[in-house]
């Protein structure tokens, strides 16, 4: 049974003081793992203080689990060390690749959805889980290009990889929406196909719609279409720990808390409606 921590936020530098002084009504905080590896001084001190009062979830951006370079054991050791220090509820990264030949493009680049890629990624996830000694949670990324060589839909790829590797899913509902818009598939069909028992966490975020395609910028509030898709997702998956992910144009903390409250209300309404239907 996975723990339900309720509703969380990303721990971001502009909110450090507000969080420490006001102890907001948030169930947990998610950190970007790389920001606290090999770090000291104020960032790590603040993380330690936040950790005293809140559960923490670790979220990495550089594992490159789908990359063709060998797994970076030095990086994995740093993840393992941070896990030992922070004792997070879980740790996650992205179902993507981030660079080749030792270069990090600092982007979450999409994989081709092929049997070869399923085999490649599943084997690497298993090795990571063995090394870290804990289950890995992987997030679906948003994408702007699709490959001619893909042999299956993205949701089939996600289900196959996580089944083969026996790992968990961080379902980014905004990313599903963005990729559905960009690649012209039905976002709800994606949600329907996600293996519900593996979804450990949900991300919600904003994006930038250019008309012909959407760029996943995390610099806007969550849009109405994504709220609708979140409502649909809760209807399918039930209560899943959910957070607002804002990485740029970061507003004052109360604005994010208000967005988080909207997520809370949507979940409560969906679950109440389902309870009513079951009782009837």
């Amino acid at each position: 049974m996975m723990s339900n921590l309720g509703f969380g936020l990303g721990l971001r530098q502009p909110h450090y003081t507000d969080i420490l002084e006001t102890r907001p009504d948030v169930g947990w905080f998610e950190i970007i793992s790389e920001n606290y590896m090999e770090a000291g001084g104020q960032p790590l001190s603040i993380l330690d203080r936040v950790r005293e009062d809140y559960p923490i979830v670790m979220h990495g951006v550089s594992m490159s689990i789908g990359g063709s370079d060998p797994l970076n054991e030095d990086y994995l050791q740093k993840i393992k060390d941070l896990i030992a220090r922070i004792e997070p509820e879980w740790y996650s990264d992205h179902l993507c690749w981030t660079g080749l030949n030792g270069t990090n493009m600092h982007d979450l680049l999409p994989l081709p959805y092929t049997v070869e890629a399923v085999n490649h990624v599943a084997e690497r996830i298993s090795r990571v889980q063995d090394f870290i000694g804990r289950r890995l949670t992987l997030e679906n990324v948003s994408s702007y290009v699709s490959y001619d060589c893909s042999e299956m839909a993205e949701w089939e790829f996600l289900a196959e990889v996580t089944d083969r590797a026996d790992c968990d899913i961080l379902l980014d509902v905004n990313n599903v929406y963005v990729s559905a818009y960009n690649h012209e598939f039905d976002a709800r069909a994606y949600i329907d196909a996600v293996p519900a028992s593996r979804v450990r966490q949900i991300h919600l975020a904003g994006h930038d719609n250019n008309g012909t395609h959407i760029i996943d910028t995390h610099d806007h509030p969550v849009c109405e279409d994504v709220w609708d898709l979140y409502e649909y997702t809760v209807g399918k998956l039930g209560a899943v720990p959910t957070m607002i992910e804002r990485d740029a144009n970061i507003p004052p903390l109360p604005e994010l808390l208000a967005e988080l409250d909207r997520a809370r209300k949507i979940e409560a309404a969906v679950l109440a409606k389902q309870a009513g239907e079951n009782a009837a």
Binding site: V145, S146, Y147, D148, C149, N182, H183, E184, T212, H213
Partner: peptide
Amino acid sequence: DLICDTSKE
């Protein structure tokens, strides 16, 4: 050569 057009872009 490896990627696809969409109907919009």
